[in-house]
Amino acid sequence: MILYYFPGACSLADHMALIEAGLDYTLISITPEKKTEDHRDFLSINPKGYIPALELDDGEILTENMVILQYIAAISGKLLPQTNILKWRTLEALAFMSSEVHGSYAPFFRNFPETEKERAREKLAKAFSLLDHQLGDKNYLISEQLTIADFYLFWILMASSRTGLELSQGLQRYYSRMKRLPSVARALHEEGLS
């Protein structure tokens, strides 16, 4: 498999999950000009033009973080509980982070007016409060078992530094604990972020 990524972007969640799941992968970075590091047109690979994109061994391309994370869990048999409500809680958390949090980061990654950034900060503060409550005293977001939702949450928290919002102590502890996981440390190193 090939993971098309940009260092430190949301594709980091997929990168960490691939490592944790023990799957073989190749990384190919994408430039802001939509070129691959080997000078191909990324739009010919993913016409949507954004990362992540995962090229399967048969040449099929998957896009969207939620889908790629679920695919990694499905083919590895890891990182997604299958036996009870925890599976659905994991998918619920992925959807929430994708729609309510990730989408709210747009003003901080582009040149938006301060009024838009302030509206986004209000929405993010509420979302972070909900995630902090869901985390509670657990080691991981859904249960005491690491899931694909944890890798997405790690990236969400890493990217939060652009917003100017302060994370709760619980989310800060969680972020620090996740950063020490071998799969997270390796992905950060491979992307030149450590």
Rank of each mutant, 00 (worst) to 15 (best):
172 Q>A: 11
21 A>P: 06
135 L>F: 13
168 S>Q: 06
38 D>N: 15
129 S>V: 02
24 D>A: 14
12 L>Q: 14
63 T>N: 12
114 E>H: 07
118 E>G: 04
112 F>L: 08
65 N>K: 04
117 K>E: 04
37 E>C: 11
44 S>F: 01
11 S>Y: 00
21 A>C: 12
5 Y>L: 11
131 L>V: 12
75 I>L: 04
156 I>M: 11
176 S>A: 10
93 A>N: 13
11 S>C: 11
2 I>Q: 10
136 G>W: 03
153 L>M: 09
27 L>E: 09
36 T>K: 07
65 N>S: 09
162 R>Y: 05
96 F>V: 13
185 A>Y: 00
42 F>G: 14
88 W>F: 14
50 Y>E: 09
49 G>P: 09
153 L>N: 01
191 E>S: 05
81 P>T: 03
53 A>I: 06
107 P>S: 12
80 L>T: 06
163 T>I: 10
11 S>F: 01
186 R>D: 03
36 T>H: 03
64 E>S: 05
174 Y>H: 07
107 P>V: 08
76 S>P: 02
81 P>V: 03
87 K>N: 06
155 W>D: 09
111 N>W: 02
124 L>Y: 03
148 I>E: 00
95 A>V: 09
127 A>R: 08
10 C>G: 10
109 F>W: 13
185 A>I: 02
107 P>F: 12
152 Y>F: 14
41 D>I: 08
184 V>S: 00
120 A>T: 08
54 L>T: 04
93 A>Y: 09
162 R>K: 13
46 N>P: 09
44 S>E: 15
102 H>S: 10
123 K>T: 11
60 E>N: 15
92 E>L: 04
54 L>W: 08
44 S>P: 03
78 K>C: 04
21 A>W: 01
149 A>W: 01
73 A>N: 01
30 I>S: 07
34 K>W: 00
131 L>Y: 13
107 P>E: 13
167 L>F: 05
168 S>K: 10
87 K>W: 01
147 T>F: 13
40 R>A: 13
35 K>L: 15
73 A>G: 02
125 A>N: 08
68 I>Y: 01
186 R>T: 11
24 D>V: 08
66 M>Y: 03
169 Q>T: 14
120 A>R: 03
11 S>H: 03
104 S>R: 11
111 N>T: 14
2 I>E: 05
190 E>M: 13
35 K>H: 12
94 L>P: 03
122 E>R: 10
10 C>Y: 00
111 N>C: 05
79 L>P: 00
185 A>V: 04
103 G>H: 05
146 L>D: 08
65 N>G: 10
